Simulated assay, not measured.
Amino acid sequence: MGIKSYTGKRVKEIPKEIPLKVSDYMTRDLITFSPDQSIEEVIEALIRHKISGGPVVNENNELIGIISEGDCIKHISDSRYYNLPMEHSKVELRMIKNVETIDGNMNIFDAAKMFLEVRRRRFPILENGKLVGQISQKDILKATMGIKGQNWK
């Protein structure tokens, strides 16, 4: 007599839909700066929060620029070279004003390609002209590692 299996009928597991959109992995809780903040305040915030930069927004939460560690270092270098006081410089004088953004509905692999082509560390994401999040290179890496666990072998 043969051995019977009591495990029941084996049904193939239907794979869950894997989130692949930028909005699924972007950071929504952002540290932002205002154009009238001093560069010293920005430097303190970058160090305190262990970040390399952040978006600059106006009072309506509309993106007007990005300030980075590199912008702050350039300010320090220029102020020391020209013997200028540091505390009077504002973010609006050092921020990058022409900011490239990406769509939250973009595929993360297309976003990864954009990071390689444009050579940026982060891209802000806007909805209806308002800043809603930001995706960084590290966010893309985290996303691909999560996907790898489900699909890549």
Rank of each mutant, 00 (worst) to 15 (best):
T144R: 05
F123R: 12
K148C: 05
N58A: 05
S68T: 15
I96C: 09
E92C: 06
S77G: 04
K90C: 00
K12V: 02
N60C: 09
V91M: 05
I3A: 03
K153P: 02
T27V: 01
I102N: 08
E117H: 04
E17F: 01
R121I: 07
V99F: 06
Y6D: 13
S34K: 14
L93I: 05
L131G: 07
A143F: 06
T101P: 11
V118M: 15
L30T: 04
G65H: 09
H88I: 10
I108E: 05
S77L: 09
H75A: 11
D78G: 07
F115N: 03
D24G: 07
N60A: 15
G104P: 06
E92Q: 11
T101C: 13
A143K: 03
D29K: 02
F123K: 13
S89V: 11
G129W: 10
K130C: 03
I66C: 03
F109I: 12
K21E: 12
I66W: 02
G2C: 07
S38C: 02
V22Y: 04
E40Y: 10
I140Q: 05
E127Q: 12
R10M: 14
E117C: 03
L131A: 03
G129E: 07
G149Q: 14
E92W: 05
S79G: 08
D29E: 09
I66Y: 01
I135L: 11
R121H: 15
R94W: 15
G54Q: 03
N98V: 00
S34E: 12
V11D: 02
T7P: 03
R10S: 13
Y25M: 07
L63W: 05
G133F: 15
M114P: 07
I18T: 10
G65D: 10
N98R: 06
D29R: 04
N60V: 09
H88F: 09
I64A: 01
G149H: 07
S68H: 13
I102W: 12
I96N: 12
R120P: 00
Q134Y: 12
I3S: 08
K130V: 08
P15A: 02
E117Q: 11
I47W: 02
Y82N: 14
I67P: 15
